[in-house]
Structure formats: structure tokens, C-alpha cells
Amino acid sequence: MFGIKQDFICELPKKYYTLSDYEKGVARWCPGCGDHAVLSSVQRLCREEQLPPEKTVFVSGIGCSSRFPHYMNTYGFHGLHGRAFPVACGVKFRRPDLNVFVITGDGDCCSIGAGAWIHAIRYNMDITTIMFDNQIYGMTKKQTSPTSRLGTISNTHPTGSVLPPVNPLQTSLGMSNVSFVAQTADWVPGHLFATIKAAYEHPGFAFIKVIMRCSKFMGPLVEEMTTNRDAISILTHENGIQPDEGTLKAYKHHHVHDPSDINAARELAEDKEVSYLGLFYQNKEALRYDIYGAHNLGFTPEDKIAAVNAQLDKYAV
């Protein structure tokens, strides 16, 4: 073409990945489930960032959300209930070249996996975590979740749940070495995408809580969440997540919040009346355990043998 010979091209253009390069199968979530929106946003992120599928790993636990890796045409690890974080951290520790995502749910993360979750925050490895919070156990058919509101009627609490919910934002913000905490909602696509993108770009452990609809088991709560626009406020700040025009128009309540202010972030997280969508907290300087983990990669066999021999010398008779 244009008389240029192939020989003159030093480097063949890299493959351009399209959305379909990241898609696999048909997602088996219920119609109207919020999970579909997150899947689309993540596939869009992969295309925008041109993430090589072979260098991208989605790690999940168990639950509706955790089926996610099966619908991504990348590497995936659909492991044990509550244990996505240790696996993901293990994947990343010696493989700094991999893009690692954790997909988890409110039960997977905040109940059975709570111990692993708070330590993953503290490890602050470069991992993007998306926690699908629909406040109910869906896969096992409507049991109370750790984030279910007090009084939630479920199959395990037919007369209403009896404990106040875990607040995942508050918990994350209370953990030492926390570096990125954000909240978004599945039915606000522009904001959802901007949040996932900001999390991906964050150098460290990014925790996103996505307020999700469960069309099957949430009952009237779905309607209330998606239509009561007074219960939602969009966080704005030059260092925060920049939502699209549509989001800002749809939601009239805005709140200026500096994401470096952890105390203000904690207050917002504890607000029981309003759910804030946006970046609660970010610290790009927090200590990163994955950098420590990968600091001595690539020893040659000779290096290794010499090092072990030097140690053995100390035990020689």
C-alpha cells in the first residue's frame, strides 16, 4: 500500500483488541441483575487500556459475582468462598507483569472472607477489587448478607434480620495502609466506568464497592435505590473521579470531597441517610507489598546454586 514495502516496517503494529476479544460465553445472571453492567464496563476498560488478555487475571471467590471470570476471555481463577484475596495476592506477588482483578461479593468479601479482605487492603498490592454489594445472598437463594439492612426479611431471618450491617467503606477506611476506596452503583454506567478506570489506574490496592441490584431477591429495595435520587450524592473534586455529564445531570446532589482527607472520608462513609458515589480516599504513596515481593526476580541457576552453596558452607563439617 502506498508503495511502502513490508521490509521497511520496523515493528509490525501490535494486535488491536476489540470488545469481543474480552468476551466469553453468555453471562448466566438473572435479567435485570447489576452484574451485567459491571461486566460491560470491565470489558470496555480492557479494550480502552488494551490489556493483553494473556496478561490479565480475574480472581474471584464464590457467589453470583464470582462467576465473572468465566465471562472474560482472559485468565481467570474461580476459587473458594471468601478466598479470592490470598489467591490474587499470590498471583501478583511474583508476577508484576500481570494485571490482576478481584471480583467479589458482599458475602464473599465481608463475611466469610473478611479476614483475608482487610489484610489484602494492608498488603496494598497493585490489584483492582470490585465488590458487588447487593445486600443479599443470591446464589444460595436469599439468605441474610453481612451488608443486609437491619430488618431484612430473608430465608434465614423470616421475621427480619437482627443485626446492623457491616459497612464495607468504613471497614476499608479503618484499615492501615489503605490506599484507594471508592463507591459507585451499577445503574449509573458513566460513573461506574469512570470509577473502575480510576481504580485500575491507581498504583496499589483499589477497593470499589458497587451498590448492586438483585432483581430476584431484593424486592422493593431495587425500586427505592434506583429511583430515590435524593438518597445519592456525587462526590466531586479535581483529584477525585470525574463523572460524566449524564451522571451529574441525573443526580442533583453533589458534594465536594478531597480524597486525601481520610477523616472526612470516614464521616461520609458513616452517613446513614445518603450514599455517596465517588472517590472516598486515595493515597498513591502507601507502602506496596507487591514491590517487595518482586524485588529479587530473575536469578540465574548459577546465582541460585552459588547462594545455596554459600549457605551450606556454614553447615559444613
Binding site: 480472581v59 481463577f77 490470598p86 499470590g90 498471583v91 506477588f93
Partner: peptide
């Protein structure tokens, strides 16, 4: 779990 992730 961490060891399995790293092995994987």
C-alpha cells in the same frame, strides 16, 4: 491460597 495463586 497465596501459594496456590503463585503456583497458578
Amino acid at each position: 491460597g497465596f501459594a496456590i495463586g503463585a503456583s497458578y
